[in-house]
Amino acid sequence: MTASEGADHQVQAISSDEDVVRVRQLVRVAAVAAKLSLVDQTKVVTAASELARNTLVYGGGGRAEVSRVANGLRNGVRIVFSDSGPGIADVDLALTDGYTTGGGMGLGLSGARRLVDEFRLDTTVGAGTTVAVVKWAR
Rank of each mutant, 00 (worst) to 15 (best):
R113T: 03
D117G: 13
M105V: 12
L26V: 00
L93S: 09
Q41I: 15
G76W: 14
L73N: 14
A48R: 03
T101S: 06
G104E: 09
V116A: 05
T100R: 09
L115D: 06
V134M: 04
Y58W: 10
T130G: 00
S67T: 13
R63N: 09
V134R: 10
G62Y: 11
V39K: 15
T123P: 04
A52Q: 08
G87F: 01
V32I: 14
L121N: 01
G126Y: 11
A47I: 07
R63P: 00
L56C: 03
E50H: 08
K35T: 15
D83N: 15
R68K: 15
V131M: 02
S49C: 08
G111S: 07
T100P: 02
R113D: 03
G85S: 01
R28D: 12
S37E: 10
N54P: 02
A89S: 11
G128A: 02
D19L: 00
Y99R: 05
A34E: 10
G87T: 05
P86K: 01
V32H: 09
V133H: 03
G128D: 02
V23Q: 07
L115H: 01
G128P: 00
A94Y: 12
L26D: 03
M105R: 13
V45P: 04
S82M: 11
T96G: 07
I88Y: 04
R63I: 07
G76I: 09
G102W: 13
L115K: 09
T124R: 15
R53K: 11
V39L: 13
Q41C: 14
G59F: 04
R114M: 04
V29I: 10
V27C: 09
L109V: 06
A132W: 00
L93H: 11
A47V: 07
G85Q: 07
D83R: 03
V80F: 01
